[in-house]
Computed example of a mutant assay.
Amino acid sequence: MSPAPARPLALLHTSPVHVPVFDALRDRHHPGLGLRHLVHEELLDRARAEGPDAVADAVGRVLAGAVADGAGAVLCTCSTLGAVAEARAGALGVPVLRVDRPMAAEAMRGGRPVVVVAAVRSTVRPTLDLLREESADPATCVGTVMVTEAWERFEAGDREGYLDAVAAAVDGIATAERPVVVLAQASMADAAERVRTPLTVLSSPGTGLAAAARAVGHRPE
Rank of each mutant, 00 (worst) to 15 (best):
P95A: 09
R26Q: 13
S15P: 00
T14Q: 12
H30V: 04
H218W: 04
G60F: 03
A47Y: 14
V67I: 07
R132G: 15
E50F: 13
R36N: 12
L130K: 06
A191G: 10
T175H: 07
S15W: 02
R178M: 06
A71T: 09
G90V: 11
R36A: 15
P95Y: 05
D164H: 06
R46P: 02
G157H: 05
V94H: 10
D171F: 12
A215W: 13
P95H: 09
G60I: 09
R26W: 09
G161H: 04
G32I: 08
R153D: 08
V62C: 15
V94E: 11
A165L: 06
G65P: 01
R125A: 11
G206L: 05
P20Q: 09
W151N: 12
P95F: 13
W151F: 15
V17S: 13
V96D: 08
V84D: 02
V114K: 01
D171Y: 08
A118M: 10
V39P: 03
A58F: 01
W151T: 08
A119I: 09
E133P: 12
A83G: 14
E134T: 04
E149K: 04
M108F: 01
V59M: 10
L128F: 14
L202R: 00
F154H: 11
P220W: 05
G157N: 10
L38D: 13
T127Y: 09
L209M: 05
P220S: 12
A54V: 07
A6D: 13
G111M: 03
H18G: 11
T148M: 15
G206I: 01
G157W: 04
V116R: 00
P52R: 03
G206V: 03
H37C: 11
R194I: 13
G143Y: 06
P205C: 09
L202V: 00
A167V: 13
W151M: 14
L128Q: 11
S79D: 13
A118F: 10
E133W: 04
G110K: 01
L202K: 00
G111E: 03
V67R: 07
D45F: 01
R101Y: 03
V195N: 00
V67C: 09
L33Y: 04
R159P: 07
E134D: 12
